[in-house]
Design a protein around this nucleic acid. Structure first.
Lengths: 268, 268
DNA sequence: CATTTTAGTTCCAATTAATGAAACCGAGTT
DNA sequence: AACTCGGTTTCATTAATTGGAACTAAAATG
């Protein structure tokens, strides 16, 4: 992806190890990697030394390391909407009794940062940290719909458009049409586009200036409910999204953008 | 800490940003850093580009980035005891109704990897990914007590021995004495050593060969319970710890150690 | 059992990237 | 207008990464 120097390469390796959803051997990494043998080898060594990877000497496999969990906790606490949104999610969960998700965009994917299960209490990283597709989830579409042109084009072009169900919007054109709709009515709908039987409504979390911070959704199953029921919660969800946006902006995500620094940061 | 090349330095910077438990300015980082201005600046740039840090262009502050959360999810799933331990934690939680913690050691600190809240939750932070001191927590002492000599010496020497309460074991000597006790009876006790009013019992999770994998604990408050009550659960906790150890060994942490590779990996 | 293959590790000279002192810039002060 | 402070950029120097190739251990093969 991006290739800034040694650090960028190291991150690529990290990402690659994480991409296998299981402990992985050197040889496997090597063949799915652009790096020559020796180079990859040394990266794995160094990252293992640093605790960013863990190495199982018996099976000779690498996996993402525990140090990441520690660092991620700091990230979750400081950079995510989760701490701010927590009380709001709690009340939404209480009122609706349904599954509630809080998500943010991370490199054109949906990153779930918090969740309330219908019955159970909070589970932390069990769900937080998980990624999903943006083009066929309520939260993903809610966020994309309100991106500024440049970011939207980028996001839309980076979707995989895999057809999970026969209702999946499996093309850029179909997606863009739905995003226009969403922008108009202010919330997104997922009508079994990702998983059969699973429907949801989602509202974007925006700053007062319209910048996308994240999204919240309420999910149900077609067995227990229909869209009328689900959509009856939209006003409530929208209000919560607004409240989170306001608080977030005050605490963490102030409005101003587009100075020289920012431009450079986002560049290729 | 360790200084392997550019990657090591980048990790140090990451760690340093995370260490401030809040978004931090360039100048602040600079003065608590060994790097010269330009060097630190470029590291921050690159890491931000990579999503390992996030940058707030208005306040000009850096914080750990969301990419870490995504990577940590993979780490948590693959390298932690959490997925294996989950059903056991659930049943312990159900049976006791108290707060249950699952922890592992990460560079001489306690890293909490999973948690179940008490039926009547007591005010206490501790979440997955959170770290805590090893010398004054039940899980920390339970793990340290069963380390092999070399690792134990290292761990013991790296504690801060800050006196959180007047019961804190605030010296290496006092700690070692308690560890001997723990090793003898097979479980650790935290008698308000970290937080006043908070007590707990903890059992180590070991492989059949005696290698430390983690620890589980049950926590209570002095207001609602006493040690007799808490200690009545020790046999149950110990059994669960053994079960987790057995499963973990089978699935993920085989016994063999100490080949050339491993030696090098752990070296300076 | 000898031989070949495979997987992982190490070497080292060529190359490339990191480095950091110093200059620069812009916004807010004096 | 000159100064200061925090942040950013430049560029010659320095130190690191690089990767082809050689090597080793262990497993597969004849």
């Amino acid at each position: 992806m991006a290739g800034d120097g040694t650090i960028g390469k190291a991150c690529d390796v990290l990402e690659q190890v994480a991409a296998f959803a299981r402990p992985v051997r050197f040889a496997e990494l090597l063949e799915s990697s652009d790096f020559p043998k020796a180079t990859l080898y040394r990266f794995l060594q160094t990252l293992t030394n640093q605790g960013m990877l863990s190495y199982d000497p018996d099976r000779q496999t690498y996996a993402p390391g525990m140090r990441l969990v520690r660092l991620a906790h700091a990230a979750w606490t400081q950079s995510s909407l989760a701490p701010i949104a927590r009380p709001f999610l709690d009340s939404l969960s209480r009122e609706t009794g349904e599954t509630v998700h809080l998500a943010q965009l991370d490199s054109s994917q949906v990153l779930y940062v918090d969740k309330r299960n219908a019955a159970q209490p909070i589970e932390m990283y069990s769900q937080a940290g998980k990624v999903g597709p943006a083009y066929c989830t309520g939260v993903g579409k809610a966020m994309m719909a309100f991106l500024e042109d440049e970011a939207l084009n980028k996001a839309v072009s980076q979707q995989s458009y895999h057809r999970f169900t026969d209702k999946t919007l499996a093309s850029e054109k179909a997606l863009r049409a739905d995003l226009d709709l969403i922008r108009g009515r202010g919330y997104a709908v997922d009508d079994e586009e990702h998983e059969p039987g699973i429907i949801c409504i989602a509202c974007p979390i925006l700053t007062s200036g319209g910048r996308v911070l994240g999204a919240i959704s309420i999910t149900g199953s077609t067995e227990r409910m229909n869209f009328d029921q689900l959509e009856s919660w939209v006003p409530r969800v929208r209000r919560v999204a607004e409240q989170i946006g306001t608080e977030a902006q005050a605490w963490r995500f102030p409005e101003t953008r587009t100075n020289a620094h920012n431009d450079r940061m986002q560049a290729t």
